[in-house]
Each structure stands twice: as structure tokens, then as C-alpha cells.
Amino acid sequence: MSSRTTEKAAFLIMALCALLVVLPVIGIVAYVVAKGAPAISWEFVSAMPKRGMKAGGIFPAIWGTTLLVVGTAVFSVPLGIGAAVYLSEYAPDNRLTKIIRMAIVNLAGIPSVVYGLFGLGLFVVFLGFGTSLLAGSLTLAVLVLPVIITTAEEAIRAVPQDYRYASLALGATKWQTVRYQVLPHGLPGTLTGVVLALGRAAGETAPILFTAAAFFLPRLPTSPFDQVMALPYHLFVIATQVPKMPESLQYGTALVLLALVVIAYAAATAIRMRLRRR
């Protein structure tokens, strides 16, 4: 084969690989939309479940997932960005820093069900939060921390060194330099990481299984110590635990979860574009 032909063949194969990556995404979305769309109605997203969840809406699960994601953000975003700033701007290159980095990498590799057990042990039992919104949020926060720290650190490191030098040379302290140059210019990238992480938190089932989620609640939670319903857990329950569940409700629930995450990504992208344009 001539080198031109080889080139063409290689190019074709790689293009196919790239296309193959897109296929499952389109497939999953199309399938969920096709099967779930008939279930979607105003009542479905705004009402309480009825008749053993076989009818009515899934509003408590939507609300619960929203609260869990907000709770996760409250705990994980400040902690994650703080750690990222420390690691990229302040941390000396020593053994302690290496241990911290190793811990972050390992944290990312732990299966999510293990986080669930950890959350059960620490937050639910030991700290006495009970199965609650608070315990679930904290567990999910620990789960997404590595993602937030890693992406935030990358975004912060990508801020050109020139800005730091210019700021320091004007007599800014290190903290002022971080506060007014490094963080604002690292923000778009950091935001991407945060939203990816929270999207993941929204869809996780195992970590909330033991720490937050309830099978069915007749009313909405009123305190952080209340249990909550959540979309992924609700989906798991209606797909496996409730006999003769209408299929469209299951796919409808999946579609709502998918839509929530997509809306969050879209919002983040829009904010990022605005920040970049400034």
C-alpha cells in the first residue's frame, strides 16, 4: 500500500471511531425521549405520586434531587476550590503535598457504593444526622470533591503566569493576586468542573441509597434532617420494586433526570461564554 492510501485508511478508521463515540449518546437520548415523552405532562413534573406511585407526578423526587445537588454544591464547591487554590498556588512541593495528591486520585477511584457505606457510617450513624438530606449531601460532596479539585486546579494553573507576576510586581499580596487575578480568570474552567461534578451527583444512586433517599414520602422535606425522595433512587425503585409499573413512567422519570442535567450543563456553558467574553 502506498503511504497515501495508508494515510487515507487510517484517517477513515479514526473518523469512524470518533463517530462511534457519538452513537451511544444519541442512541440513549433518543431511546429515553421516545419512551419517556408520552409520560411527560405538567402534572407529571408538578404533582405528588398517586396510587402507589403508579400514577400522578414525581415532583417530590425532582425537588429532592434539586435539594441534594444544592446541598452537595454548598459543601463541595468551597472546599474543592479552596483545596485547588492551595495545591496550585501555595503548596510546597513536599511529601505532604504528594500524599494529598495521591489521596485525591484514590478518592476518584473509589466505587460510589463504598461512598454510600462510608456516608452511612460517618454521617448517618456516627455524627447522628440520620438518613437525611444533610447526610446525603455530605456523602455526595465527598464523592465529587476529586472531580472539582482536579478540574479547578487545572483551570487555575492555566491562568498565565504573566498575570501573577504583573500583579505581584504592583505590590499585590499573594492573596490579592489569587483573589483578583487567578480566581476570576480560572473561573470559567472551574465552573465546567463544578457543573460536571454536580451533574454526576444528581445521577448517583448508591451514595444516597443508605444516607438520604426514601422509597416514598407523603410530603416534602422541611428540614435538612428529613429524608428525601430523589430521581435516580425513585427510578431504581419503580423499575425494580414496584410490580406492574407502567413503563412510560420509568422512562419519563429517566427523561426528567436527563433533562435536569442537560439544563444545568447548558446554563453553565452560557455563563462560561459570558465570562469569557468579558
Binding site: 498565565p160 504573566d162 498575570y163 507576576y165 504583573a166 500583579s167 505581584l168 510586581a169 505590590g171
Partner: peptide, 14 residues
């Protein structure tokens, strides 16, 4: 650094 200002090789406006 307040008393001694600096201009760098590459223009580096924020």
C-alpha cells in the same frame, strides 16, 4: 514592589 515598579518583556495587560 510599590516603590519599585516593573514592566515586563512581553506586554502583559490583564
Amino acid at each position: 514592589r510599590r516603590k519599585v515598579g516593573m514592566v515586563f518583556q512581553r506586554p502583559n495587560p490583564f
